[in-house]
Each structure stands twice: as structure tokens, then as C-alpha cells.
């Protein structure tokens, strides 16, 4: 309790408390995705052969490129925090901006990939998909839902980082008070880690 200040609720600031709240939130996010991974586990257990066959329809190269993009964005994210902590506001801004760009590149790539699939008639409930085996229907169902919800998280992450960019420019967050940026970083890394699991489960199981 030593470092907590009890002046009034306006000036009160608790670094450890903020981090704790963020970690708890990430737990809830983990459990949210956990429900989806549970579905994946059950259905893959039921249809192992069809899952392997269906995974051949996904382009490993695009998946690998996206993995690379997201991992790099986690690096720039981490560096932007270090830069801010060391008082280098300009560098931190550049790195935050780069992170946003990489996130956008990931989404662009994903858009192309989804677009191609939908163009070929592979999307939930499509006639083309429904004539295939049940394992394949479920595989693509999971693919669209899980990468979709993940993509939504990337989008939210970009939104959060845009706010951080503004806060940094305004000086609301600086080298003394950077917990907001750090928490945004935690969120960004979390979204990244989810992709690290999605990539092998959908692209590499052929």
C-alpha cells in the first residue's frame, strides 16, 4: 500500500492496480477465445481427416506473412513503450504509428484472403460449402468466426492505439505516466498471441 496516494479520487493514481485490472481483462478475453478453441477442439476431434483436408484450401504463405506482420508489430509496440519511458516522445510516436500501420496491413491481407475465399463461394452457409463434408463445413465455419473475431480485436486494438497516439501528442501520457500505453501494449500482445495459435491450427495442420 506504500506507493498508493490517498489525496482524493481526482489525483489518485495506482500503477499496480491499473496493471492488475488490465490483466484481469485479458483473462476474460482469453476465456472468450477459450470458448471458440473448445469448439475447435471438439470438432477437430470428431473430424480429424476432413479438417486436414480442408486446411489445404488455405494459403500458408498469406498466413505466414500475416504472422510475420503481427509479430513485428508487437516488437514496435514494445519499443514504443521503452522509448516513451526513456523520454523519447518523438520515437515513441513513430513506433506507435508503425504498429498501427502493421495492424492495418494485417487486416488488409486478411481482407484479400477472405475476399478470395468468398469469391470462390466458400463462406458460411454458401451452397458451395454445404455440399461438402460436415468436417469441412465446420472447419470453414470456425475459420471465418475465429479469424473474424480475432480481426475485430485487431481493429479495436488499432482504435485504442489511435487514442494513445493522441494522448502522447497531447502529453496526457508521458515518461512518468505511461500505464495507459503499457496496458494498450498488453492488449496488442494478447491479440498477437491469439493469432500465434490460430495460424498453426488453421494453416499448418495439412
Amino acid at each position: 500500500m506504500e506507493e498508493t496516494l490517498y489525496k482524493s479520487s481526482e489525483t489518485y493514481r495506482d500503477y499496480t492496480g491499473s496493471k492488475m485490472g488490465m490483466w484481469l481483462f485479458l483473462f476474460t478475453e482469453m476465456l472468450l477465445f477459450g470458448g471458440l478453441f473448445l469448439l475447435y477442439a471438439v470438432y477437430r476431434f470428431k473430424h480429424p481427416v476432413e479438417f486436414h483436408a480442408a486446411a489445404k484450401g488455405l494459403d500458408t504463405t498469406i498466413g505466414a506473412v500475416n504472422t510475420l506482420i503481427l509479430l513485428t508489430s508487437s516488437l514496435t509496440m514494445a519499443l514504443s513503450i521503452s522509448a516513451l519511458q526513456k523520454g523519447n516522445k518523438r520515437l515513441s510516436l513513430v513506433l506507435q504509428f508503425l504498429t498501427i500501420l502493421l495492424g492495418a496491413a494485417f487486416l488488409g491481407n486478411k481482407y484479400m484472403e477472405w475476399g478470395a475465399k468468398i469469391h470462390h463461394g466458400v463462406y458460411p452457409g454458401s451452397e458451395h460449402l454445404l455440399i461438402k463434408g460436415k468436417g469441412e463445413i465446420l472447419f470453414y465455419g470456425l475459420y471465418f468466426v475465429m479469424t473474424g473475431i480475432h480481426g475485430l480485436h485487431v481493429l479495436i486494438g488499432i482504435g485504442v492505439l489511435l487514442f494513445m497516439l493522441i494522448f502522447t501528442i497531447r502529453g496526457t501520457i508521458d515518461f512518468e505516466n505511461f500505464v495507459k500505453l503499457e496496458n494498450s501494449g498488453l492488449y496488442w500482445h494478447f491479440v498477437d498471441i491469439v493469432w500465434v495459435f490460430l495460424f498453426p491450427l488453421f494453416y499448418l495442420i495439412t
Partner: peptide
Amino acid sequence: FFGVGFFDPSKGGDPLL
């Protein structure tokens, strides 16, 4: 909205899940 089929037996899904 999209009829993915996670809980629809005709698409391989399982209502028990």
C-alpha cells in the same frame, strides 16, 4: 445471421455443445 452450423446437426454441429 450467417448459419455457420456450430449447433446445427445438419451441418455437423452439435446442440449439446
